[in-house]
């Protein structure tokens, strides 16, 4: 599903290149639950962002569902987003001015989903995450865990093939964190590919593959159950 060939990323500052990622070769299959681990500055988030097409790479090849992403223009990439990729951020990143319901609705609006269909999709999602009662609240009226729940729901609502989660539990207490991880595990079982970035060994263990990054290189990869 995802194939990275010799992907590299650097920031050029005058005459000095600062390398963030080097020689990344990685294949991720449909149904994988991949955890990316590594110390601060190892390039975890950057790798996730490149996979999510939120950031450009400096070199290498990236195939997403056999499409060469490195050759696509912005329009095409946005289309990929809309169709296949859901994001979950450490800081939730819900839109403060919109209610829970409207936050869930926004991706569908951008995807130009018809009103009736939109309504039923949102209703399903509210149901599934058990947040029907909260649908008219604004993000700042929710706890962190609830906000992240909404963020996951928002990522899922477009029915993505893959969810990219950047330290999804980083701002949550352990109980809330565990709930979110269970939720992701469940989604993975239902067929969604998941890639998460995490510091936490325990959280990483929810995945079936763990990729360790250090100084921009893939240091090692472990396979789990």
């Amino acid at each position: 599903m995802i194939k990275l060939v010799d992907v590299e990323k650097y920031y050029a500052n005058k005459f000095i290149k600062t390398w963030v990622l080097r020689n990344i070769n990685l294949t991720i299959h449909e149904g994988d639950f991949v955890s990316i681990m590594g110390p601060s500055g190892a390039g975890k988030s950057t790798l996730l962002h490149i996979i999510g097409m939120l950031d450009d790479m400096s070199g290498g090849e990236y195939y997403f569902m056999d499409e060469p992403v490195h050759k696509l223009n912005e329009k095409k990439r946005t289309a990929f987003h809309q169709q296949y990729i859901g994001f979950v951020f450490q800081a939730y990143h819900l839109i403060d001015e919109l209610t829970v319901y409207e936050n869930l609705e926004t991706p569908l609006l951008y995807k130009k989903v018809k009103t009736a269909e939109r309504k039923s999709m949102i209703a399903d999602m509210l149901d599934r995450f058990n947040i029907v009662a909260k649908k008219d609240l604004f993000p700042n009226q929710l706890s962190g865990g609830q906000q992240q729940l909404v963020a996951v729901a928002r990522a899922l609502i477009i029915n993505p093939k893959i969810i990219l989660a950047d330290e999804p539990t980083g701002n949550l207490n352990s109980k809330q964190g565990l709930e979110i991880m269970e939720m992701l595990k469940q989604l993975n079982k239902e067929g969604t590919t998941i890639i998460q970035v995490t510091h936490d060994e325990n959280k990483a263990a929810f995945g079936n593959r763990i990729i360790h990054l250090a100084d921009g290189y893939v240091e090692k990869e472990e396979q789990h159950g």
Binding site: H81, I95, Y110, K111
Partner: peptide
Amino acid sequence: VKEIGVRKAIGARRWE
């Protein structure tokens, strides 16, 4: 910017 970034991440096109 945060809002704009989120909107981009969840699929907004630039012209939108």
